[in-house]
Amino acid sequence: MLSFLLIILVSIFFMGLVIRTKSLASGRKGPGILQPMKDIVRLWKKGSVYSTTTSIIFRIAPTVYFSSIIMAILMIPHGNQPGIISFGGDFVLFAYILALGKFLMIISALDTGSSFEGMGASREALFSMLVEPAFFIIMGSLALFTGHTSFYDMFSVLNYGSYISYLIGALSTFVLILIAMIENSRMPVDDPKTHLELTMIHEVMILDNSGFDLGVILYCTPLKFAMYGALIANFFIGSLPLQISLPLFFAIQIVFAVTVGILESFMARFRMSHNPQFIFILTSVSLLIFFGVLLVLGKFI
């Protein structure tokens, strides 16, 4: 319960921090930290326009997408406080629930019959397929490292002994940050601020959404960021008591947001055809983590 509330809280100011960092990096003052959230709330108050080509799929998809992310957040623990849902193998459900939301968003993009949205849908489907193995290998490494198979058990047992295990923590953080960037279609893979439909991924999928539904979809981005931020934070919190873990959690989320902002300010977007190679790197880095774990446990023959 605690971790759920924390993630919701962080999601409110996360994008604001990212945008603020970006504007400071480009020499502007930038909007207030709550501005992105205010934009979303304004969208929630608006009416909507639906394309005549669309069917009911288009209307239900954003809501299911949103609830899939909420469901995923419910599974994330906070140090030694388990998430609301916690059982052996819960990260499988975590990944598959997110995939369900994605499935519906992809078909809702195809539902509009627009060529742009089809393009975005195609890319989203491919990239999310490519990014999945990295996540599962990290979770497999953690399962191997701790001998447990649920988020809560893995993170509460996690402790760092040797130098290699620090390396494992650092690499996992790196991979999770990049997974978060790809899942949210941010900079090295996709540029949310681009003005050209041909080069977008996620933004082009939601060209036809408006009003409340658009607000819901836009709110999903900070939610997902905060969710992955909480996962990263769990790597460091371990079984620390609350008075240390709470400030640490916020510090990590803020550092995460600033990192995202800095990455977006100083990195250029890849060519679309180079994205798969980039995403494959994640899988190989996570394989490195796996072998690191084998090394720590002395299981190499």
Binding site: G47, S48, Y50, L207, D208
Partner: peptide
């Protein structure tokens, strides 16, 4: 809220 139908954005 109001809701209206229109063409797909092209």
């Amino acid at each position: 809220r109001t809701s209206k139908a229109d063409l797909t954005w092209g």
